[in-house]
């Protein structure tokens, strides 16, 4: 087979599309659905800028075929804010100054989302380990770690 029709749910919305088998999930999100929040960085699984959640788990969307997402629930950075209200992680990234050029931020946020689902009260060490696949060339990571701790504290209050 060279093309396939797939059904995927992206940020809660169902899509049915026919795609080439050689299209990556990243290309599907950006070019078919025009969800350009997810970034193309290295295209080889090193940088994490293309991280999305597939059935709740973080994966590099550049190393997965779109057809492999058939039947899956995909969650991208566009799904974080609800009705114009930012997600606590997004608020915390702003509050802590965890964004500089911003290119890694969508991937960081998705890995951070998966991290908080796994460890609602993470230690700095857990954050650094779980975010090892997301490279940031600007911040030095310190403020990203602080932002995630901040978001985890917001979780408790909210």
């Amino acid at each position: 087979m060279k093309t396939l029709t797939i059904q995927v749910t992206v940020n809660g919305e169902a899509f049915c599309k026919t795609v080439g088998v050689n299209m990556t999930l990243l290309e599907f999100l950006r070019e078919e659905l025009h969800l350009t929040g997810t970034k193309l960085g290295c295209n080889e699984g090193e940088c994490g800028a293309c991280t999305v959640l597939v059935d709740g788990k973080p994966v590099n969307s550049c190393l997965m075929l779109a057809v492999e997402a058939d039947g899956a629930e995909i969650f991208t950075v566009e799904g974080l804010a609800k009705d114009g209200t930012l997600h606590p992680l997004q608020e915390a990234f702003i509050e802590a100054g965890a964004v500089q050029c911003g290119f890694c931020t969508p991937g960081m946020l998705m890995s951070a989302k998966a991290l908080l689902d796994k460890y609602p009260k993470p230690t700095a060490q857990q954050i650094r380990k779980e975010l090892e696949g997301n490279i940031c060339r600007c911040t030095g990571y310190d403020r990203i770690v602080k932002a995630i701790i901040l978001a985890s504290e917001m979780n408790k209050e909210g």
Partner: peptide, 9 residues
């Protein structure tokens, strides 16, 4: 191995 994302797949 690699990163969380790599180990997931």
């Amino acid at each position: 191995v690699g990163s969380v994302q790599i180990r997931q797949r």
